Amino acid sequence: MGKAARKKNKAPKVRDVFVAQPFEGLAAEPELIAMREFVPSATARLSIADSPDLLVTLGTVLPMAAAAFVRSDGEIFLGLQVQTRSSDVSRDLGRSLRWALQAKEGDVLSVPDTTSPPAEGGGERLQDLLVPDAELDVNLHRDFSWWLPEDTEPTGEVKLSLDRANEAIMPTERLGPGSYWVLAGEKAHLRWVRSEPENRLLQALARLSAAGELGLGEGSRYAGSFRAHGLLVPVWDLDPDAHAREWAEPAKQLGVRLDAALASLDDEPLNATERRARDGLIGRQLTLR
């Protein structure tokens, strides 16, 4: 075969472009990021655009970190925390969801399809399958018993996997949209996934910091922030001896102050003190991929 013929028969190369904000355009973006990155055991119902009556459960972690499975009672599950990923997490999840919608009881998808080029029909993303303006009603669980149908006793490998997963759970409470209290060993934190553009959010945080209003009250300290899937997640260290419910109202009031600071940016640019505060906040950032 000549060189020209080999070139003609060669499959076209599809560039795999990294998508920094894979859940952009979905109202549930902050909750999706929280459930994928740091919420241990939680579920939420998904609203499927072309099948409004179909029940699909989104879960943080499925057995053996599977991408999806159909339980013996017919309930469909999609997993967020999986073992592999491509350059577009939304496309991975879209492929796994499409597989689950066509699977039968007992079927398990161990890993998401991260190899099929979009040009070959593998390009469906969550944005193509879900109702974009649907919020997620997140239900937190103290264990992973939701993996099994009701009144089912785990045995053998299933029981071992369930026990291991339960032992790894850190106590977690949801304080508000995208906002979670977590007790991590001897430390407690508030992690808050914010939907605002990073630069604008940093300016608002800096304005609060310069005014001494960035904390949640006694026993709290702003620790820094991390980027996850294109959004900024501010983190506060909290007194671990205080119960999660004691931080619910302070977190709510912080949200009010933050919204006011965001609104004020349209009328007042940062002053010199606030700019220095912003530079300090930027120095305490990292990125999760």
Rank of each mutant, 00 (worst) to 15 (best):
S264W: 04
R142A: 14
K10I: 03
Q81V: 04
V56D: 07
T84E: 11
E218C: 01
E213C: 00
A119K: 10
P22D: 09
S145W: 04
A44Q: 06
L93C: 03
A223H: 11
Q21H: 15
A100K: 09
L201S: 06
R257Y: 10
A68Q: 08
A42D: 11
G94N: 09
Y180A: 01
E105D: 10
L265P: 01
S225R: 06
L216G: 00
Q127H: 08
F226D: 01
L97C: 11
R275M: 12
S145K: 09
G176I: 09
R164T: 04
E196S: 11
E29A: 13
E153M: 07
Q127C: 03
R95W: 04
L216H: 01
K10C: 09
A27G: 02
P149G: 02
Y180R: 00
P63A: 10
L93F: 10
R85A: 12
A263H: 09
L136S: 05
T172F: 09
T273N: 13
N199K: 15
F23V: 05
P250I: 10
D239H: 09
S90D: 04
V61M: 02
L129V: 09
H141D: 10
A27L: 12
L232F: 02
D73Q: 12
D113Q: 10
K10S: 12
A242T: 04
G59M: 13
G79P: 05
E249I: 08
L129H: 05
R257Q: 10
R85G: 12
L55E: 15
K10H: 12
Q21P: 00
E150D: 13
L109T: 03
N199T: 14
V138D: 01
V56A: 05
Q203E: 15
S90V: 06
R284F: 00
K104E: 15
E135L: 14
L55G: 01
A251C: 14
D16F: 07
T43L: 05
V89Q: 11
